[in-house]
Structure formats: structure tokens, C-alpha cells
Design a binder for these strands. Structure first.
Length: 350
DNA sequence: CGATTTTGACCAGCGC
DNA sequence: GCGCTGGTCAAAATCG
């Protein structure tokens, strides 16, 4: 089966408390088959923008691949702006009702009910609130391995940018009442709600979601003094999609096993582990369900081979985002999993 | 028996 | 002020 695979990065601005089902999902990065060549020539890390996070922010790079029509329909979208100056700017675009209003015209790939969406949109215009920016990274792909590994890599990059590398959200204005950590939502096609990410979570609440038959679960990192939270809910329009929203940054390494080697057939699990500071646990059953689900189609232009496994050479060369052969782990002090994706100079700045 | 989940109650923010 | 909703608390239940 030939599928158009792609990575979507959604700029979801506005209501922090709205259901994912209310999100005006809109593709700004949608790879058509004839764009694959372009992507291949970029390299995965290049695509993610981690070769130079300051001058080439992740999302700016991604935005460079966006669908032109979206550029035209969404001038307020920070990703479509040519004035992006830094990741800081990108990620701190204030959420205003205007900027969060996203046309449904190009969102058919995500929403099956445009008419309904118009109503939702109208609702959103009415109810949109000022809130911390929420970046929703939407990995539109049927392959679970692709979802897990790539989205986690992206997540790690984002967390590295804001946490380790010093890019943080601007403090909220004083007139804003409650301060929140930056939040990042990830949409993953999965059959289980709570995706294994290497950290230990304790569920502390569950709420019914308005206009959705699926409840939202609230989890907190079990590590003392780590106040990272996450919300897990299913997408109303597509129940097969799990939306995980992370809030805050872990103040500790992943509590589980050390990193596996990025070798051979373990690549998928390895990158999953490496990508978010999340070494594998002792592979619970649902972990296998996610990470070892057989590939049924070509997954992505993003250096996944035809058999669905990551290109080992690419990984080896791009691992540290430096030209030439990537330095072996012994060349850097162990920064935990961070070293897997960040250039060495960034690590030194920690 | 400690860790985790469940679940109803409570609180805060927001719109009307 | 009131009602609605999202988010959190905490006691009870369940699990390993």
C-alpha cells in the first residue's frame, strides 16, 4: 500500500484546557511524495533543525516544507512567518484569538467533518483564552515505530531546547493569573492510552471530556521534586489517536535502564529510548505493541528504510549533528540521552 | 504492605 | 453571582 507519509507540526495556540477534539488541526508540514527527495536531501536531523537550533529552529525548518496553501491561509501562524528570529520567538508567540484561528480549509486530512469543524471553529473563536503556548506535534503516520521514535526524538529536542539549552518561555505577563509550564502535545496512533516513555507516572485524576466519549487522564511523574505532568486523551475525531500532552521538564534522568546501543535491529527501540531520555523499561507488553508493531507500509521519507527501519548510516553520521563521522559516545561525557541529538558544543554549554 | 488506580469532591478561572 | 469546565486532591479500592 502506498501512502503519503509525513510529519505535521501543528501550532496549536490558545485554550490550554480545551480538548484535543477542539484543536483546529492544521497541517503546516505535509510531505507529499514528490517532496520526499527534498526531505531525503535534508537529513533527519537537518529536518528537525537540531544542527543549529538557534539559527535554524526546528519548526522553522519544518515550516520550510509546509504546504503553500497553508502559508496563504494562515498568515498569523508563527511558523509561516518569515520574521522568525529564534526558537525563543517561535515558541513564545502569544496565543491570541486571532493567531489561533485556523482555517479548516486545509484540515481535511485530519478532520472528516468540515461542517462540524466550522462550528467548532466558531466556538473556539468565542472561547479562546490566553494561555501558555501549546505546540502540538502531529505525526501523521500509520507506522507505530515511526510515531514513537520520531515523535520522541522531537520531544527530546524540544525539551532540550527549552530545558537544557536555556531557551525558555518568556515569563508570563503579570496580569496573567496562573503560570504554567510550556506544554507539548503529541498525537500518536496507538491502541493503548498511556504510552510508555521511560518515565514513571502516577495517575492522579481522570475527567470526562466535553463532547467526547473518551476521558482524559492526568498523570504526574512519580519522582519526588519532579513536577512534570502529562495528560492523555483520545482524539474524538479519530479514536485511534492518542494525544499526550506534557507539561514541565523532568529534573532527573529517566529512572529506567541505561541506553541501548544504536545498532542494527534495535534501532527503533534505541532511538525511542534515546530520543526522550527514556531508556527502555523491561519491555512491557504494550511496549511491544507499540514499538515492535510490524511495518505495513513505507513509513516516511525521514531516513526510514523501505523495511521501516532507520537508516543506520544516517543515524551514525547525524547523531551529533556534526560533519564527518560522528564522535563515539566516549568522546563526550555522558550527558545522558541528550548527547544523542545535540551538538557537542551545546552540551558543553550546559 | 507499598505502590498505583479509581473516583467523587473541591477549587479556580472564565463567560454570561 | 452563577454555572460550566478543566484541573487537582485525597480517601478508598485494587494490584503486585
Amino acid at each position: 500500500m502506498e501512502r503519503k507519509e509525513g510529519v505535521k507540526v501543528e501550532d496549536v495556540l490558545g485554550n490550554s484546557s480545551c480538548s484535543v477534539n477542539d484543536f483546529p488541526l492544521q497541517s503546516i508540514f505535509d510531505l507529499s511524495s514528490n517532496e520526499e527527495e527534498k526531505i531525503r536531501s535534508l537529513g533527519f536531523m537537518d529536518l528537525l533543525g537540531v544542527q543549529d537550533l538557534i539559527s535554524s529552529p526546528l519548526l522553522e525548518i519544518m515550516a520550510a516544507q509546509q504546504v503553500p496553501s497553508l502559508m496563504a491561509t494562515q498568515p498569523p501562524n508563527p511558523f509561516s512567518s518569515t520574521k522568525i528570529e529564534s526558537p525563543h520567538e517561535v515558541f513564545n508567540q502569544p496565543a491570541t484569538p486571532n493567531s489561533s484561528t485556523i482555517s479548516s480549509a486545509s484540515s481535511e486530512a485530519v478532520h472528516d467533518e468540515p461542517a462540524k469543524l466550522d462550528d467548532q471553529e466558531e466556538d473556539q473563536r468565542k472561547t479562546k483564552k490566553q494561555c501558555p503556548i501549546l505546540k502540538l506535534i502531529w505525526i501523521r503516520n500509520q507506522g507505530f515505530d515511526f510515531h514513537q521514535s520520531v515523535l520522541k526524538l522531537i520531544m527530546k529536542i524540544i525539551f532540550c531546547c527549552f530545558g537544557v539549552c536555556g531557551f525558555r518561555l518568556k515569563p508570563k505577563k503579570t496580569n496573567q493569573k496562573r503560570q504554567r509550564e510550556p506544554r507539548f502535545a503529541f498525537m500518536t496512533k496507538s491502541e493503548v492510552d498511556h504510552l510508555e516513555d521511560g518515565y514513571r507516572w502516577r495517575k492522579y485524576g481522570q475527567k470526562a471530556v466535553k463532547n467526547s466519549p473518551f476521558p482524559r487522564s492526568y498523570y504526574r511523574c512519580t519522582t519526588i521534586s519532579c513536577n512534570v505532568k502529562k495528560r492523555v486523551e483520545r482524539c474524538f475525531s479519530d479514536p485511534s489517536i492518542v494525544v499526550t500532552t506534557y507539561e514541565g521538564q523532568h529534573t532527573h534522568p529517566s529512572p529506567v535502564m541505561p541506553r541501548p546501543n544504536l545498532v542494527g535491529s534495535h534501532l527503533n527501540s534505541a532511538i525511542s529510548a534515546a530520543s526522550f531520555g527514556m531508556p527502555m523499561q523491561t519491555t512491557p507488553s504494550h511496549y511491544h505493541q507499540h514499538f515492535q508493531q510490524p511495518f505495513t507500509d513505507n513509513l516516511s521519507p525521514l531516513y526510514f528504510g523501505h523495511n521501516g527501519s532507520l537508516n543506520a548510516t544516517f543515524l551514525h553520521q547525524k547523531r551529533f549533528c556534526t560533519p564527518g563521522p560522528g564522535p563515539g559516545p566516549s568522546l563526550l561525557k555522558d550527558h545522558g540521552l541528550l548527547q544523542d541529538i545535540l551538538p557537542s558544543h551545546m552540551l558543553k554549554e550546559e
